[in-house]
Every structure is written in structure tokens, then in C-alpha cells.
Write a protein that binds this DNA or RNA. Structure first.
Lengths: 129, 129
DNA sequence: GCTTAATGTTTACAAACGTAGTCGTTTTAT
DNA sequence: ATAAAACGACTACGTTTGTAAACATTAAGC
């Protein structure tokens, strides 16, 4: 019965991602605690959170540790790893793997604030050092 | 009855996106011509392409014009519009709408080539002008 | 002790997706 | 003229996702 290790093939869905964010913010958490942080925002019931947590565990993205008769859930993949993968996927899919066109597009579509620009300039200077 | 106009709710799926890329590259195209450009790369049959085209038409992302007994397909949404939306979605979902953290992340994860850096610097200078 | 509240597990079910086959019709080649 | 090829429409079917209810077990309050 091949215990499912999470490969890159096991994508985290959008709803699941909301749960992950809660766990990245603070963990470990019980299902009810996760619900406290995401249910109202997403208009979900506790049942939904339980399903999402189960699926995340099945995908190997979340681990559990028993705590009395309940479980505490904690992320097994790091947020950085996740957003890195997602970002790369997008850049690959839409911009042929080149980040510059993405940047150009964000710039052009006003998606960059003055703060963003300054921050990016600072990053560039930093990298040039 | 209710002819489905494409709202932002009608997302283009990943497989559908491949078809869109072909049409953005050149259009209008017949189904067979689309297949010529995407079938081998994705290991699809012509039937798959036909389904994807139908769904895209249903979503209002692609329009048709009759050409003899067949149809010619042409994109109704522009590539810029699409990639802009997708980019914004990602930035919103993963970086709270701020582009700088995305940039930082790409930089940190080696996803930026020297060419990218130079191009981005050039863009910044351009914007500063 | 017995009822109730909390929890994980199982089951449900519609919509979206990936992938493709079948059917009916029309065009084209022989 | 007839058979084969091409084409869109319809149907199919397993998987993933979103969303949740039902169920079984157990802890806790009365």
C-alpha cells in the first residue's frame, strides 16, 4: 500500500492553499483552530476544513501528531518551497521561463507600486554587490 | 437562450491554455491546424483538441467563423489580458498583491538570469525617465 | 451512568478537467 | 456513384476540486 510521499505531482489546490496559509502562519493547529482562522473568510463549514486537511495529509503536504483523541496538523512543505514552485510554474507557462517579461508585464499593467519599484531597485543593488 | 459571455469566472484551464497559445501565435486556424501545432508536444489526439476548442468557445474565449464545412477559430481574449490576469492572481494569492516579494523570491531562487537582471534594470531606468 | 459535544473517517455529489471515442453529415477521390 | 476522409456535435469516463453531511468513537459534563 505504497504510502504516498508528496511528489511534485501532488499539487496543492487553491482551497487547500488557504488551509496551508493558516498552518504556515501558526502550527501545529487542530482542525477546529484552522477553521477559526479560515472558515469565516471563505464561508466554509468545519466539515470542509476537515476534508481539506485530510487531502493535504494524503498528499503529504501536512503531517499530523496525535494530541489526546485529536490531531494537530503541521505543514510538511515550507511556504518558500511552495511559492517558489508556483512562481516558477507561472513563469514557465506564461513567459517561457524568463522572469523579465513577467516583470515587464507587471510594470506595464500598473501592478507595481512606487514601493515595489524602490524595493526591487534595492534588491538589484544588493545582488550587484 | 443565455449566450455565455466569458466572465472572469470562466477560467481557461491549463490544457486549454496550450490551445490558446497556438491561436495567439497565429489565427484563425482550423481544428486540424491547431492540432498540427500542439498535438505532438502534448501527446494529444485531434479529438482532444476538438474538445478543448469547443470548451473555449463555450467559455467565450474563442470565436468561430465558418469556412466551408469547417470552422476557423480565433481568440477572443488577448494574450496580454490573459497573462495579466493570471499574473495578478498569483501575486494576489501568494504575495498579498505586492510584486516586490515575488521578485525577491525569483531572485533568491536563482530564477533570474543575468539577462533578466539587465533587462529589468533597463526597464526600471526606462520607467524612471 | 448517560447524554452531549468534539473529532477523525467515510461517503456524497456536482462541477471542472483531461483525454478521447462515436455519430451523422458532407466533401472528395476514385 | 460509391467509398473514404474530414469535420463538428454529442457522449463518455475517470480524476480532481469544492463543499459538506453522516457516522463512529470517545471525552466530558451532569
Amino acid at each position: 500500500m505504497a504510502q504516498r510521499k508528496q511528489g511534485p505531482g501532488d499539487r496543492i489546490s487553491e482551497a487547500e492553499h488557504s488551509v496551508m496559509e493558516a498552518l504556515w502562519e501558526e502550527s501545529p493547529l487542530a482542525a477546529a483552530e484552522v477553521c477559526e482562522r479560515v472558515c469565516t473568510a471563505n464561508d466554509w463549514s468545519i466539515a470542509t476544513v476537515k476534508t481539506l486537511l485530510s487531502r493535504l495529509v494524503a498528499k503529504g503536504a501536512v503531517g499530523t501528531e496525535p494530541d489526546g483523541r485529536k490531531f494537530l496538523y503541521r505543514p510538511l512543505v515550507e511556504r518558500d518551497e511552495y511559492i517558489g514552485g508556483e512562481s516558477r510554474r507561472l513563469v514557465d507557462r506564461l513567459f517561457g521561463g524568463r522572469a523579465a517579461p513577467l516583470f515587464a508585464h507587471l510594470a506595464e499593467s500598473e501592478a507595481l507600486t512606487e514601493d515595489d519599484l524602490e524595493e526591487i531597485e534595492a534588491l538589484l543593488r544588493e545582488m550587484r554587490k
